[in-house]
Write a protein that binds this DNA or RNA. Structure first.
Length: 506
RNA sequence: GGCCCGUUCGUCUAAGGGCUAGGACACCACCCUUUCACGGUGGUGAUACGAGUUCGAAUCUCGUACGGGCUACCA
């Protein structure tokens, strides 16, 4: 099928690549893949003040991690490129001029100072933010209020100008949003937005329409914050290319933080990631932690993001990417905003860790341990460890806490948990355990446990009284998987070594 | 202020005029477990409010309230 969807990005992660942005990309990707269509990524680098060095590469890295690379393009590739807006600069002017010629737009010569003055002069209690609209247009310096001669003179003198859309007086603009149904606006409440800036760059409003046309976009998904400017885009489509060619719009619900639209600050404040991957702002050196580094699997990340505002109508919650592609439908996206719940996000990750095979986790866990300074980890040991502890891990980083004692002998265990109840009988008991274990050539958890309990019975000691000390000896604390499973993986030499060492301390 | 969008357990949501409003996260209890978890079973908990349409409304309509978004030569 001929479906082409696109997503646009400002190379400023503060505005572009939090959860909401990622989800927009995800929905684009799922939709495109479902219909075997294309998914186009556009980079908006028009505003230099917002441009952050390295952000573009960062965005692509995030998409790559999540498995959401566009099907058609790298930044320069594809049949409808270039995809970086600054490289398309020359394309837009002629459409803006066309609109002026057709009477749908006009030149405006107002300086920033003029605009500021207007906003100040017309500001009232009832109207705290006056707009450059039909009621004010004739009071400003533009090709509508000025005579043709005056306009021509200013143009000839190369006075800086912008091109603004001329909003019709009193018209109802409506369109059908895939998620919300019919949405309509009265043009008298909308201002004359700038389409082409003084530097010759288009604003989003012009660029989005021209690009979607040139790139033959069939479906356009974006955040709900764009809904108020949708009528401008509909009008531009009507004037420039015809409403019948306009892509179908879907305005995605916002992802909310604890108060309002989810922001980077919310993440820092409440201790959860809002970006896919770590981002350090080169301007401020501020580090924002990502889902990847926090210990999320990309599969879980995609899964939790997809379910934030969408479901397939069944009670299924865990989906592979392939299942999502097969089952996703943009019509089923919920219209209300969704508050991000980090607890639930972690649950998704837990489910995915449980679902993942030991093999697929191996290299990730290996490098995680390495980062923490645990080197020389044997592959076969590690896979046994992962099998034993993976159900206990919510985040990948939990693997360290759940398994470091396999690789590092506990320096000083929780002696206080044992010492008060320690006595001669226990000392003798463990001496016998050592003797028994030294003769054990099988070294399996089951035999270790049965002989341990036999010795306890013979010595008339309750297993419970000596089980905890054994755990402290091997692990160092009151946690971890079954103590005999641990002993098995630790091996004979290490296990006996740890018991002997502990006996000298108790 | 104006315009737009939205509103079902604390949170994410299902139910598209007809069962006792279903599930998941979180929380609580019990079970399992001689550690801590996982797991299992059960429980608390919602249709914002008011009218209208209808035999029948979470569902359709209107109003109100609340929440959110937009209101730049940003996106």
């Amino acid at each position: 099928m001929d479906k082409r969807v696109r997503v646009r990005f400002a190379p400023s992660p503060t505005g572009g690549l939090h959860l909401g942005g990622m989800r927009t990309v995800l929905y684009n990707c799922l939709f495109a893949k479902k219909y075997d269509g294309d998914f186009v990524l556009r980079i908006e680098d028009t505003d230099q003040s917002r441009y952050v060095a390295g952000a573009e590469e960062y965005i692509f890295n995030c998409l790559k991690w999540a498995g959401l690379e566009p099907t058609e393009s790298s930044v320069h590739g594809g049949n409808y490129g270039p995809y970086r807006q600054s490289e398309r600069k020359g394309l837009y002017r002629k459409y803006a001029e066309q609109l002026v010629k057709d009477g749908h737009a006009y030149y405006a010569f107002d300086t920033p100072g003029d605009l500021e003055k207007m906003r100040h002069d017309f500001k009232t209690e009832q109207n705290p933010s006056p707009q450059y609209d039909g009621s004010i247009r004739m009071k400003m310096r533009n090709s509508v209020s000025l005579s043709a001669d005056e306009t021509k003179k200013l143009l000839d003198e190369n006075v800086r100008y912008v091109i603004r859309i001329k909003m019709p007086e009193h018209e109802t603009v409506s369109f059908t949003d895939i998620i919300r149904g019919e949405v309509s606006f009265d043009t008298s409440t909308i201002d004359d937005k700038v389409l082409l800036k003084a530097d010759g760059m288009p604003t989003y409003h012009l660029a989005v329409v021209v690009d979607d046309h040139l790139m033959k976009i069939s479906h356009a998904f974006r955040g709900e914050e764009w809904l108020p400017s949708a009528p401008i885009h509909v009008l531009l489509w009507k004037y420039l290319f015809g409403l019948n060619k306009m892509p179908q719009w879907a305005h995605l619900p916002l992802i909310l933080g604890p108060n309002g639209k989810l922001s980077k600050r919310d993440g820092a404040k409440y201790g959860f990631p809002v970006f896919a991957m770590n981002w350090s702002d080169p301007k401020t050196n501020e580090l924002t932690e990502g889902f990847k580094e926090k210990g999320f699997l990309p599969e879980a990340f995609i899964n939790l993001l997809a379910l934030l505002g969408w479901n397939d109508g069944t009670e299924q919650e865990i989906f592979t990417k392939e299942e999502l592609i097969g089952k996703f439908s943009i019509e089923r996206v919920h219209s209300g905003g969704a508050k991000f719940d980090y607890e639930k996000a972690k649950w998704f990750n837990h489910e995915w860790i449980k679902k993942s095979s030991v093999d697929s986790l191996q290299s990730t866990v290996m490098s995680l341990l390495l980062e923490k300074g645990i080197t020389a980890v044997d592959d076969s040991i590690l896979s046994k460890v992962i099998r034993l502890v993976k159900d206990r891990c919510t985040l990948l980083t939990d693997f360290y806490d759940q398994s470091y004692f396999f690789f590092i002998s506990p320096e000083k265990g929780d002696v206080d948990a044992v010492k008060p109840k320690w006595n001669e009988a226990k000392q003798l008991f463990f001496a016998e355990v050592i003797r028994n274990y030294e003769l054990n050539n099988d070294w399996k958890a089951i035999t270790l446990e049965s002989s341990f309990k036999e010795i306890a019975a013979v010595n008339q000691i309750k297993p419970g009284e000596v089980l905890l000390p054994l755990r402290i000896m091997l692990v160092g604390g009151k946690f971890g998987p079954g103590v005999f499973d641990i002993a098995e993986i630790l091996g004979k030499e290490e296990t006996l070594g740890r018991i002997k060492k502990a006996l000298t301390v108790f």
